[in-house]
Every structure is written in structure tokens, then in C-alpha cells.
Amino acid sequence: MTQDATFEDGTAKPLRLVAMDIEDLQVLSALCQDSVFPATEMQWHRGKQRFGILLNRFRWEEIPKADRGKRTPERVQCVLAVENVQRVASQGVTQGDVDTILSLMSVTFDPDESGGGAVLLTLAGDGAIRLSVSELEVALREVTRPYAAVSGKVPDHKE
């Protein structure tokens, strides 16, 4: 008798996702929830029409609700890249401040009639970044191995 393979039998590979529609973006947004990053780790390359952030993503997929408190919480560094960016606007964000740490809550898309729209990065504490795009294309790519979360805690939204 053979036994089914389990997820643990596979070799872990870095996550690489691209969202080209709203449904894909919902998955990407869920993975990015509670990512943290210094304000200095955002960059807009106007000529390349690309906006990028180096995130420290919380690995929610590694801690099911039943196992919270039993497993060491992990983070992994990722690049979140938004393509086709025409304009960037922000609210409640102090750019370039090395002491400011931001927390990403969600990534959403507000389409317009032309096929473009706005990618909205909602931050904890009423901050937001609005990226006007000619078409939706958002990528998330892990660039380091997972590491134990410095805080040792799972993010809590009750506070």
C-alpha cells in the first residue's frame, strides 16, 4: 500500500507570484498582510514605471490558527513590485525617515474605464500609498530564506 505525499515531502522554493487581475491580487494581498518595512525601502523608478518595496513578510501560511503559540513565527524578505506606474501619491507616510517602520495591511485595485486604475497599499495607522497604473501587474518575490520573527509573536489585530 502506498501513502499519499505530504506538503512536507516537497522541497521549499521561494515564492514568486504575479497578479494580473483583482482575484490574483486578493491572494497576493493576503500573503502581504502584516508585512513590515522601513520607509527608506520604497522606491519609484519613474523611467521604468516601476514601484518597489523590500518587505519583511509574515509567513501566515506557515502558522495555521490551531498551531499559533506552538510554532516559531517566521518572516521572509520579499520584493513587492508594481509595474506600469504613472504616478505615486501617499498619505501619512514620512518618506526617507530611517526610524519609520510601516506595516502593510492590504493591497487592492480600483479600476477605471481605460483598463488602468489605482493600486492602493493600505498601511496600519491611516497611512496609504496610491499608485496610478496604466494596467494591473503586481509581483511578489521572496529574496531571502525565512527567518524567526524578531518579535517572536504573531501579529494581533485586536489592539
Rank of each mutant, 00 (worst) to 15 (best):
R16P: 00
C32H: 06
E159F: 08
F58A: 07
L120K: 15
V88Q: 04
R75N: 06
D4F: 08
F37M: 07
D21P: 05
E83G: 03
G92W: 09
V79H: 12
D112E: 14
D156I: 05
V143N: 06
W44P: 09
L15W: 10
V93A: 11
M105L: 15
Q91P: 00
A5S: 13
V150I: 09
V98W: 00
R130S: 14
D126E: 09
A19W: 00
S103N: 15
D97T: 03
L123D: 12
V88H: 02
M105Q: 15
L136Q: 00
S132T: 13
F7A: 15
C32T: 14
L136T: 09
N84D: 12
T122G: 01
V18E: 00
D24Y: 02
E8H: 11
E23P: 00
S132P: 02
P38M: 03
L140N: 02
V150N: 06
V143P: 01
F37K: 08
Q49K: 14
R145L: 03
P146E: 05
Q26A: 11
K158C: 04
T72R: 12
I101L: 02
V79L: 05
M20Y: 01
T72D: 12
V119P: 01
R59H: 01
T94G: 00
E61S: 09
R68K: 15
V93T: 10
R46M: 10
Q95R: 12
F58L: 03
P38T: 00
E137S: 04
K13H: 13
D110W: 07
P38C: 01
I101N: 00
R59A: 04
L80Y: 05
I22R: 08
H157K: 15
M20V: 08
D24Q: 06
E41V: 02
D99K: 03
V82D: 01
T144Q: 07
P73T: 12
T11F: 10
A139V: 00
A39I: 05
D156C: 07
D21L: 07
E62N: 08
V143W: 04
N56F: 06
P73K: 10
D110C: 11
L121Y: 03
V98P: 04
R75V: 11
S90T: 11
S114R: 13
A89F: 08
V150H: 11
M20A: 03
H45Q: 12
S29F: 01
E23F: 11
S132K: 14
T72M: 10
G52F: 00
G96P: 05
A89Q: 15
E142K: 04
Q49A: 12
A89S: 14
R145N: 07
K158S: 15
P73R: 13
P155E: 10
A124G: 06
L121F: 04
M105R: 15
H157T: 11
F7K: 13
R16A: 12
H45P: 01
W60I: 02
V85F: 06
L25K: 02
A81L: 10
G92K: 10
L120R: 14
A30N: 13
D156H: 08
G117M: 14
A148E: 07
L17N: 00
A89M: 08
G117T: 11
P64M: 04
S103W: 06
